[in-house]
């Protein structure tokens, strides 16, 4: 879960170190205090979400996360996450590498595809856009955008007009 979130956060333009997973048992109050203090200080150095190096601006992040939450609800990426967890559990393999590899090859692509689809909808709600503008707003390659776009067109949600895409009926 944590690895998925980290990789997907990076995909959404957020520094993945903003998420941390730590362990402190009931008996380890001093360790807890150390962890929490260290973590708060690290976040203090990073500054607000959207201001650290390599992060997207906060408006983009908000839009992207809105799409991302929807993506994380979708059955496809959730199945991918569940199946990977099941496989790792069965194999008893919990090395960092195995988890990271599984997540980057199986789950994140599924999440990203859903995220792009959802984000297209959000972007087009604001007004018509051409394919290049969409690609740059989505931080995605042309082929990544074309596929969901044509799906949406087939569904009749999106239509093309003068080289620009817009929500039907808008």
């Amino acid at each position: 879960m944590a690895e998925t979130c980290k990789q997907f956060l990076a995909d959404c333009g957020i520094n993945p170190d903003r998420l941390t997973l730590e362990w402190a048992s009931a008996a380890e109050a001093p360790r807890f205090v150390e962890l929490i203090t260290g973590y708060v200080n690290r976040i203090k150095e990073k500054g607000e979400t959207g201001t650290a190096e390599g992060e997207a601006d906060s408006a983009t992040i908000r839009r992207r996360l809105k799409a991302a939450v929807k993506a994380a609800e979708a059955r496809k990426p959730r199945s991918a996450l569940g199946m990977l967890a099941k496989k790792l559990h069965k194999d008893g393999e919990y090395t960092k590498e195995a988890i990271a590899k599984g997540v980057s090859s199986k789950i994140v692509p599924a999440l990203r595809a859903e995220r792009i689809k959802e984000e297209i909808m959000l972007l087009l709600k604001e007004g018509p856009m051409d394919i290049d503008a969409l690609c740059s707003a989505l931080s995605a390659k042309k082929e990544e955008v074309e596929k969901p776009l044509s799906q949406l067109q087939k569904k009749g949600v999106v239509e093309e007009q003068d080289g620009k895409f817009k929500l039907k009926g808008k």
């Binding site: 956060l9 998420l19 997973l21 708060v40 990073k46 979400t49 992040i61 809105k66 994380a72 996450l81």
Partner: peptide, 25 residues
Amino acid sequence: CTGRIDTRFILEAFRCGADGVFTGG
């Protein structure tokens, strides 16, 4: 349990303006 934490929770937290999310098991 930290196992309860759904990917959506983390994403939603950042969407709601979190500058960081600390999950503690």
